[in-house]
C-alpha cells in the first residue's frame, strides 16, 4: 500500500479546476475520510456534503475517478488507481461550490413524477391489507430502498441530453407508488411519467442500475412503467 494518496479535487463552481492534495493513506479509509482529512487539515474552505456516514442519507455522492459513487461507503482501496483519486461534484447538476451540487432539479422531478403518496383512508379506518407476496407489493419492495443520492441521475446520459427528463430515481419512485395498492393517484401519475420527459426516453442501457449503491434497478421499474403505459393513454386528448 502506498503511504500517501495523490488526490485532485474540483474547486470552484462551473468554472474552476482541479487542485492537488497529498493525503496520508490509512487502513479501511473511505473516500469521504479523504475529503474530511483535506477539509480539516489542509484547506478549511473546501465545501462538501455528508450526514450519516453509513450509507443511509444519500448526501455524500460525488464523482470518484470519473464515476458517481457514494463516498462514505466507498473504500479507497476499491477505487484508487496507482494511489490516485480524482474527486468532482456529481454530473448533471449545477455546482454550488467545490463538491456540492444543487439537488433541487433532482428532487423537483420526483415531485413532477408524482412521487408523493396519497391514500384514501384516514386514521379512523381499518388498515388496508397488502399481501406481502403479491406481485405489486414485491415490485414496490424492489425499488423502495432508494436513499435519494443522485448517483443514478448523474450517471444517466439521457438526463444530460434532455434536461426535462425525469431521470431514473424519480421514475423508480413513481414505479413503487404505481405498485402501491393504497395510492389513489394512479391516473395522474401515469400521465406524469409518459412521453419523452418520462419513461419513454429511457434507453434501457442500465447505467443507473449498474451504479446504484443500493443495488436497485430503476431500469426495470422504467420498463414496468412502459409496459403499463402500453394500454393507458397519457391523457389530455
Amino acid at each position: 500500500m502506498t503511504k500517501t494518496l495523490a488526490v485532485s479535487v474540483w474547486r470552484g463552481k462551473e468554472e474552476g479546476g482541479f487542485v492537488s492534495y497529498e493525503v496520508p493513506r490509512r487502513d479501511n479509509q473511505t473516500v469521504l475520510d479523504v475529503i474530511t482529512h483535506i477539509q480539516r487539515n489542509v484547506d478549511h474552505t473546501l465545501a462538501y456534503r455528508f450526514a450519516c456516514r453509513v450509507g443511509m442519507c444519500g448526501s455524500c455522492a460525488m464523482t470518484v475517478n470519473g464515476k458517481a459513487r457514494w463516498t462514505c461507503r466507498t473504500h479507497v482501496s476499491q477505487v484508487a488507481e496507482n494511489g490516485k483519486l480524482e474527486l468532482a461534484p456529481l454530473a448533471n447538476l449545477p455546482i454550488v461550490k467545490d463538491l456540492v451540487t444543487d439537488m433541487r432539479d433532482f428532487f423537483d422531478k420526483w415531485a413532477r413524477g408524482l412521487g408523493q403518496f396519497k391514500g384514501s383512508r384516514t386514521r379512523k379506518d381499518e388498515f388496508e391489507k397488502v399481501r406481502p407476496d403479491s406481485k405489486a407489493r414485491m415490485a414496490a419492495d424492489a425499488g423502495i430502498e432508494c436513499i435519494g443520492c443522485g448517483v443514478c441521475y448523474a450517471s444517466c446520459d439521457v438526463v444530460s441530453w434532455r434536461p426535462d427528463y425525469l431521470g431514473p430515481a424519480a421514475l423508480n419512485r413513481a414505479w413503487t407508488l404505481v405498485n402501491d395498492q393504497r395510492d389513489t393517484q394512479l391516473v395522474e401519475r401515469m400521465k406524469a411519467v409518459a412521453g419523452d420527459a418520462g419513461c419513454h426516453s429511457c434507453h434501457t442501457q442500465g447505467s443507473c442500475t449498474e451504479r446504484c449503491p443500493k443495488q436497485l434497478a430503476p431500469t426495470a421499474g422504467i420498463a414496468g412503467l412502459k409496459r403499463q403505459l402500453m394500454t393507458t393513454p397519457a391523457g389530455g386528448k
Binding site: 412521453g195 420527459a197 419513454h200 402500453m230 393513454p233 397519457a234 389530455g236 386528448k237
Partner: peptide
C-alpha cells in the same frame, strides 16, 4: 393530443 401522448404512441410504433 398532448406532446407526451404523441411520444408515448410513437414509442410503441
Amino acid at each position: 393530443m398532448t406532446h407526451a401522448e404523441t411520444k408515448r404512441q410513437l414509442w410503441y410504433v
